[in-house]
Write a protein that binds this DNA or RNA. Structure first.
Lengths: 248, 248
DNA sequence: CGCCGGTTTGAGTCCATTCAAGAGGAGTGG
DNA sequence: CCACTCCTCTTGAATGGACTCAAACCGGCG
């Protein structure tokens, strides 16, 4: 398996999905000093309430953002794939408002926030692109509000799968129709506001209706069109093909 | 009633809740060219899917962001008060991923996004503060995911009220314990992922338990402590007192 | 082999919805 | 001033979707 040329390569590639970068801006981002850190499965990367002085860019593995309600119930509001800046939000905010958690073995590049700010001051175009990138995370979170607030159980799970698949595609991950499914049924419940028991029943329904197969940590989509219809999935909010319609 | 000295005054005041601005940075923001626009109650300010070349800052009145699910159900993911930049997200994104809607009579200052970008290139400190401001909107949306995903009906409604009250306080709006309640019960349902019928029942419960009184468009909090406990409300995510703990 | 985390199944309960109808209040026009 | 309309709020009864609480099953792994 070929190594990516640079730890931040996938990050630049992702940004170019929604913003055009000049060669100088690409270089400026790739030149950001960063250190590689590894996290074992199920390990906290950032804790809510802590002050954060940098951000992680995922090089491999999966991570999620979550908060814990007063009852102790966990709510996941984003799942991240290779190339995502998982924690820029927390670094720019005065303190972290949410947890970041590694799902499986994670390799991440850590960048000091000061270096990012300095680079942005030099390169307004790159600044705009990175700002936009953080706002796309916001757009995704808004769609999650809709998912949890206004869709029934099957649709919620199906929608989550559609998003996961689309993001893996965009990151160049899904090979031959098979995708990674890093979430347990418990975690799927925490994404969708359901219990793991009910998630299990929805999965069986989706399997019996020929929408997906899900074995172990491998997800296969059997009927993408019907899956998106069940899910009420409109991929625009992910902004993975935005370059064409881009304003400036 | 005294007039604010400048259309963007409330905006600067809000930013200073979470970021320190130099006098020059304040001036730079206040010098942004803007035009005043008015919207009647229940009027769209921005439509999902449209390309947006600027953003509105609320001078008076209330607005909300929403998306429509495939079933036709509406989900509201943010309510905005005086001083909020209601549409910076949509202006920085390639196109609007959500609607913005005026709740009542709204007066807003419209700023071209190009002017904002130009100002930010000149004033990195202001850039950082505005970036942070948009990310705080994200933090609020994350808390909404938790609210609709992981709290029961009373808590959801109570939490919404706590947020609304706290934001009005921060904007200098609630006088003598009475706050504006610009949302209909239908709209409260769209905020919380409930039906208006069920919202009505939760309101009666909250009234009978002496938590609030709600008559017409006026909300009174009768017992803030118990209300926040019922709501599972932790105000940190709003970052209205962040200056003290601020990192840089 | 025995453990352990994750998945599956079942039965009973309850929270929130649906559907429907009525009441209140504000604004409009005759 | 009244009649009329529209919108919002209120109430009731019945339904159902998702939850709870268990227990059993399964596969991987030490």
């Amino acid at each position: 398996m070929p190594q990516d040329p640079h730890p931040l390569h996938a990050f630049v590639r992702k940004i170019e999905h929604h913003s055009q970068l000049t060669a100088a801006e690409q270089d400026a981002i790739l030149s950001l000093p960063c250190s590689i850190r590894n996290f074992p499965p199920n390990r906290h990367m950032v804790r809510e309430g802590s002050a954060v002085d940098g951000c992680y860019v995922l090089m491999s593995g999966y991570a999620f953002r979550s908060k814990i309600a007063g009852t102790g119930a966990r709510q996941i509001m984003a799942v991240h794939v290779k190339g995502d800046a998982v924690d820029l939000q927390n670094a720019v905010l005065p303190w972290a408002d949410h947890d970041v958690h590694a799902l499986n073995q994670v390799e991440a590049a850590y960048i000091q926030i000061d270096a990012i700010h300095a680079m942005m001051a030099q390169h307004p175009g790159a600044a705009r692109a990175i700002w936009r990138d953080t706002l796309i995370d916001g757009a995704v979170e808004r769609e999650w509000v809709v998912n949890v607030g206004r869709r029934d159980a099957v649709a919620r799970v199906a929608h989550l799968f559609c998003e996961l698949v689309t993001r893996q595609e965009a990151a160049g991950l899904g090979r031959s129709g098979a995708y990674d499914m890093p979430l347990t049924q418990e975690a799927i419940g925490d994404c969708t506001g359901l219990t793991s028991v009910h998630v299990n029943r929805m999965l069986q329904r989706m399997r019996s209706e020929g929408l997906i197969t899900l074995r172990g940590r491998e997800l296969r989509v059997e009927d993408w069109d019907r899956l998106t219809r069940v899910a009420d999935f409109q991929p625009e909010y992910l902004f993975v093909e935005a370059n064409a319609r881009q304003v400036a």
